[in-house]
């Protein structure tokens, strides 16, 4: 446990130090890479709550990532083009304000997670994997055919959205926003795991029948975890869209759902910092190996294979021992 705390602190310090160093030596692209890692980590922190603690192998978290992205895209699209958004009951000008966009992204993805979870949690195992995938693909094809918002081409957002008191176009400032969001999500995650709900959820994953015999409903516990999970991944989607200043149906694609799972497995399933380590490794490999060859996924696959075969519990498991108390 103590060892893991040190590792966790070192990881966060490293993720903060790299962009700061890049700022000093004036390499803005490196700051963008670190921002990308922080956002992917945030998305995977969300997934890890469902996957790592709830035991829910969601192969459809791209749905929430994409909903977060499109929340940003649609609101900013209307604001930048001065086309009011007619919601039927009210007309809205759209917005370029990040806090409002985040709120919408979180609420929309939480609502989607509630509906998807209600239906998907009637199944388990492989069926759960497939049904979550199917839901995400429905969003994907819907986005492709949604001509008003660019269809397959997506929505370009010309200027990054605003955050009070900051200039979000300065890479290090936008990194700061994403890094703080990640820290808050990790804090929430840590509190959650130590809470009564976290204990019950953890047991619901391991022995649902035991949870029932103490009078709790394991499915309901998992549903709440799934909603929180979707909401956090949705927030990451909104930030990701702002990083690229572009939203497209690819945010809904199953590749992204798969990547998030890979990140968590690499770092460590059900480990607080598993997603962060996984995301940092993923972005680093993508950058370095991707510069050498377009087939860098082969190397990623080999590493993933190694971790699954020889380091159950991911790299954090390898370094700090199996999960669990004491």
């Amino acid at each position: 446990m103590i060892r893991e705390s040190y590792l966790n602190a070192a990881l966060l310090a490293g993720l903060l130090a790299v962009p700061l160093y890049a700022l000093v030596v004036d390499e803005p692209f490196t700051i963008t890479l670190a921002t990308r890692a922080a956002i992917l980590a945030l998305a995977a922190v969300g997934l890890n709550i469902a996957l790592g603690w709830g035991g829910l192998v969601s192969f459809g978290h791209a749905a929430f990532f994409g909903i977060g992205g499109y929340s940003m895209g649609i609101l900013a699209f209307h604001a930048q083009n001065f086309v009011p958004l007619d919601l039927g009951i009210m007309v809205f000008d759209g917005t370029k304000s990040m806090p409002i966009i985040w709120l919408v992204a979180v609420l929309a993805s939480a609502l989607a997670a509630l509906l998807i979870g209600l239906l998907s949690l009637r199944t388990s195992g492989v069926y759960f994997i497939m049904i979550t995938l199917a839901f995400a693909q429905m969003f994907y094809y819907f986005a492709i055919s949604w001509a008003r918002y660019g269809g397959e081409d997506g929505i370009p957002i010309y200027v990054r959205n605003d955050f009070p008191g900051l200039n979000t176009l300065v890479p290090i400032q936008f990194f700061g926003i994403c890094f703080v969001a990640l820290l808050l999500a990790l804090w929430l995650n840590a509190r959650l795991v130590a809470s009564p709900f976290g204990l019950a959820l953890n047991a619901a994953r391991q022995v649902p029948v035991r949870v029932q015999t103490v009078g709790l409903d394991p499915t309901r516990l998992k549903l709440v975890a799934f909603v929180m999970s979707g909401a956090i991944t949705g927030l990451a989607g909104a930030l990701f869209a702002d990083l690229n200043r572009f939203v497209s149906p690819s945010m809904f694609s199953w590749h992204l759902s798969g990547e998030l799972i890979v990140l968590i497995i690499l770092g460590g399933v059900g480990r607080l910092m598993g997603p962060v380590l996984g995301a940092v490794m993923f972005v680093a490999l993508e950058h370095w190996l991707g510069g050498l060859t377009t087939h860098w996924h082969i190397a990623l696959g080999a590493i993933l294979l190694g971790v699954v075969l020889f380091a159950r519990g991911g790299l954090i498991g390898l370094l700090c021992g199996p999960r669990g108390q004491t």
Partner: peptide, 10 residues
């Protein structure tokens, strides 16, 4: 039917 990864107290 116990949560094997958890402590006895948990």
């Amino acid at each position: 039917a116990l949560a094997m990864e958890d402590s006895v107290l948990e």
